[in-house]
Simulated scan of single mutants.
Amino acid sequence: MDILFDPQLVERHRERALQIGDRQAHFLLNIAADEIADRIAIVERHFDTAIELHGATGVTAQRVVETGKVGSMTRIETSDEFLVREPNSKISSLENLGLEPASANLVISPLSLHLTNDTPGTLIQIRKALKPDGLFLAALPGSGTLQELRDVLLATEVELLGGASPRVIPFADVRDIGALLQRAGFALPVTDTETYTVRYDSIFPLMRDLRAMGMANPLMGRSRTPLTRRFFMRAAELYAERYSDPDGRIRATFSIIYMSGWAPHESQQKPLKPGSANVRLADALKGKSS
Rank of each mutant, 00 (worst) to 15 (best):
278 N>A: 15
108 I>D: 02
22 D>P: 04
39 R>T: 14
130 L>G: 03
23 R>L: 01
21 G>H: 01
132 P>L: 02
131 K>L: 13
36 I>Q: 07
236 A>N: 14
112 S>H: 12
281 L>G: 11
186 F>E: 02
241 E>W: 13
144 G>Y: 05
92 S>L: 07
260 S>P: 08
71 G>L: 07
254 F>E: 11
187 A>H: 00
58 G>T: 04
32 A>W: 12
193 T>S: 00
222 R>V: 07
256 I>N: 12
287 G>N: 13
119 T>Q: 08
216 A>T: 08
80 D>C: 09
6 D>K: 10
49 T>L: 15
131 K>T: 06
147 Q>L: 10
148 E>F: 09
43 V>T: 14
283 D>W: 12
135 L>C: 01
190 V>R: 01
207 M>T: 14
186 F>P: 01
19 Q>M: 08
31 I>T: 09
247 D>A: 06
161 L>H: 11
162 G>A: 09
265 H>P: 07
126 I>T: 04
278 N>R: 15
113 L>T: 07
36 I>A: 12
204 F>D: 03
236 A>S: 10
48 D>A: 11
28 L>K: 11
282 A>D: 13
39 R>V: 11
246 P>W: 11
139 A>S: 13
44 E>A: 15
137 L>M: 07
231 F>N: 00
97 L>M: 06
120 P>H: 06
59 V>Y: 12
288 K>G: 03
157 E>R: 02
230 R>E: 12
4 L>S: 02
63 R>G: 14
204 F>K: 02
107 V>P: 05
284 A>R: 12
233 M>D: 11
243 Y>W: 10
6 D>Y: 14
46 H>D: 15
180 L>D: 05
3 I>R: 08
62 Q>E: 14
197 T>M: 00
35 E>M: 14
66 E>W: 07
103 S>W: 01
6 D>T: 13
287 G>S: 10
85 R>M: 06
248 G>R: 06
128 K>M: 02
49 T>M: 14
106 L>W: 05
14 R>Y: 04
106 L>N: 11
138 A>F: 04
264 P>V: 03
59 V>C: 12
109 S>K: 13
145 T>D: 10
223 S>Q: 03
170 P>S: 08
12 R>C: 05
175 R>I: 13
196 Y>L: 10
11 E>N: 05
145 T>C: 09
276 S>E: 15
68 G>R: 10
140 L>W: 04
35 E>Q: 14
112 S>C: 13
183 R>W: 04
264 P>M: 12
52 E>L: 00
281 L>V: 14
13 H>V: 01
58 G>E: 09
139 A>M: 08
23 R>Q: 05
145 T>A: 06
290 S>Q: 13
243 Y>E: 02
210 L>V: 11
228 T>I: 04
99 L>D: 06
271 P>I: 15
75 R>A: 14
179 A>W: 00
49 T>Q: 15
276 S>V: 12
194 E>S: 07
65 V>H: 04
43 V>S: 09
198 V>I: 01
188 L>D: 00
283 D>M: 14
281 L>Y: 05
118 D>G: 05
161 L>E: 13
155 A>N: 07
180 L>S: 04
237 E>W: 00
211 R>P: 02
245 D>P: 00
180 L>E: 03
259 M>N: 08
136 F>V: 01
179 A>S: 10
190 V>G: 00
20 I>M: 05
53 L>K: 04
26 H>P: 00
59 V>N: 10
253 T>D: 07
204 F>M: 04
115 L>C: 02
145 T>N: 06
4 L>Q: 06
184 A>E: 01
